[in-house]
Amino acid sequence: MEQPNVKKKILSVLSVEHSGILPRVTGLFSRRGFNIDSIIACKTENPKTARWTLGVTGDEATFTQLMRQLLKLEDIITVEALDPENCSNSELLLIKVKTADSGRASVLKISQTYGGRVLDVGETTMTLEMTGQTEEIDRFVSRMEEFGIVELARTGITALSRGDDTIHMVD
């Protein structure tokens, strides 16, 4: 059911870097009933901090409450909400597609159009890699459906703010 005021947002979070923080963040989401579409954690330019990128769906009140709750965790340094329309964002797709019955040439052609790259070629399948914005990847995946998707993996969205801004400036 389509709910009004519900939209997708990207939360960019800077935390202290250590192994125990993942369950603190995911536990907070599950016990307060917030839905995560995707979650990525990685090391950053600073060895003491980690960056999290969370894809979240909800209304404005949910985002606000979520950000305030995240900031209460001792290990969280800053939280910033990024508008997917107005930030640099990308995700990575790995997809294994059936290439029997002379489909190989068509798969390669479509893949090139989307900027995909061949990672591996099997007897009856081909594994491709593609990066791009979520919607672009969605479109590419749906194009591959006609050939038969054997399996796929996506990293989920990762993002940085546009221009010279950094999350460090957010208080």
């Binding site: 009140a61 606000t64 409450q65 305030r68 709750q69 900031l71 209460k72």
Partner: peptide, 11 residues
Amino acid sequence: VDHAEFDKNVA
């Protein structure tokens, strides 16, 4: 003192 209490239960 806790920002997360604002609007949590009552706007």
